[in-house]
Design a protein around this nucleic acid. Structure first.
Lengths: 183, 183
DNA sequence: GTCTATAAAGCGATAGAC
DNA sequence: GTCTATCGCTTTATAGAC
């Protein structure tokens, strides 16, 4: 647990489960099994730096695993299917919440607004580009991409609110269907 | 500001803006212009009681203003249009966030899980009933209602994340359109 | 019913030994 | 690089004067 790269996902889970305000250093030392001193050795900027790096790490991970399929040039529709699969995997079929969404809704958005914007804009851009390559007009592609990301976020909220992950699965199927994709 | 009924909306805004964990008593005394002593006089159960009563108050308000149009028996489609108008008003066209959604995503869901479930289930039930009365088959009506509520929640997340309320307006229009309603 | 004072605990953050 | 001890502050909550 001395590697920064292995530390970030653990901290991410603490932020995800408790929000920025609720994620205390006590919870973090417990989750990482590291003393406060060690945490501050890795992150001299404290809690704010931890959150910033966690968000950056998530952005990187999404670029590598979620948006990456969208960039494959030969078959855009297959790329979109790959994105849906990656999304389902990452959010554990609706049992896991979106940390960036959590931050966006809270007061911490003021401090991390740019990173939050970058995450969602990057997602929408990547999806819109794939839709455009599949022959859909530019403006329509953008709105469809926005709608899909929006539905995923809403599905995560509702699935957790109703404590029913099937809400998430249904929403993913719906979104795929509306993009004229087989399930 | 001595009336409990006038106190709850003020506290609601504090919880909405800072989340359950971030809503400190200091913020609440500032917002209500009341001392801690007075707040504890009204809410002996402290912060938890405040949040519970705020959530109950929101549930009551939604029943009175948002779901109410859905129950009008003559024209279900007009009732649904009334719901969309009330939703747009309540969430200030995407500039205001859903407190119940915020609670649902955070760690406080464990403490307020029943109230969160009741809120969303009530919303979906009311909308599904109206759709059924407009001639849509039961199962389809339920899924459509779930989808609409989900899209509203997602739109609130994305509008705030991108700092662009138009995302919310577009999503409401989309949802109306898909239910075969004129805007 | 409202206030101030205060308690006890937890918070983020720092210092310094090892 | 990891730890313990500690600082200063904020937190929730209570007590008691008015």
């Amino acid at each position: 647990m001395t590697e920064r790269a292995e530390l970030l996902p653990v901290l991410a889970e603490v932020f995800r489960a408790h929000g920025y305000e609720g994620a205390s250093l006590a919870l973090m030392t417990a989750a990482t099994e590291l003393g406060k001193g060690s945490l501050y050795h890795f992150f001299p900027g404290g809690k704010e730096q931890m959150a910033a790096e966690v968000l950056a790490d998530i952005d990187r991970l999404f670029n590598e695993t979620v948006y990456e399929p969208l960039r494959q040039t030969n078959d855009p529709m297959q790329g979109i299917a790959g994105m849906f699969a990656a999304v389902d995997r990452y959010f554990q079929s609706g049992r896991r919440v979106c940390l960036v969404g959590v931050v966006a809704l809270g007061a911490a958005r003021d401090a991390f607004g740019e990173q939050v914007k970058t995450y969602f804009a990057g997602w929408i851009d990547a999806l819109a580009a794939a839709l455009r390559r599949s022959g859909i007009e530019k403006g329509v592609a953008r709105r469809q991409a926005e709608q899909v990301v929006l539905e995923i976020q809403g599905a995560l909220v509702l699935a957790r609110a109703l404590d029913d992950p099937k809400v998430f699965s249904r929403a993913l199927d719906q979104a795929k269907l509306r993009l004229n994709m087989k399930r």
